[in-house]
Amino acid sequence: MKAKVYVTLKKGVLDPQGKAVGGALESMGYKEVKDLRIGKFIEIELNGSSKTETEKRLKEMCEKLLANTVVEDYRVEIE
């Protein structure tokens, strides 16, 4: 099985890196850029056949290591 994990900063948490990149796009002429936030994308290949069980385990992985839930949200997609 293959999973995609998206880790993003929670709303309201300052993202200076996103601000800098957004500012760069704007200065390049992309005036339509209003806001930009940067997160992480993690691809995981896993053994297992039960989607429910895999989902549960992936949630654990996110809570324990992949995301710091003080400042980050996560979203998991299983293919």
């Binding site: 948490v13 300052l14 200076p16 890196q17 800098a20 710091n68 003080v70 400042v71």
Partner: peptide, 16 residues
Amino acid sequence: TEAGLLPGVLMRNKGL
């Protein structure tokens, strides 16, 4: 902080 022994988190410096 990651271990939960102290609260909060240390994020990227504001000035990067």
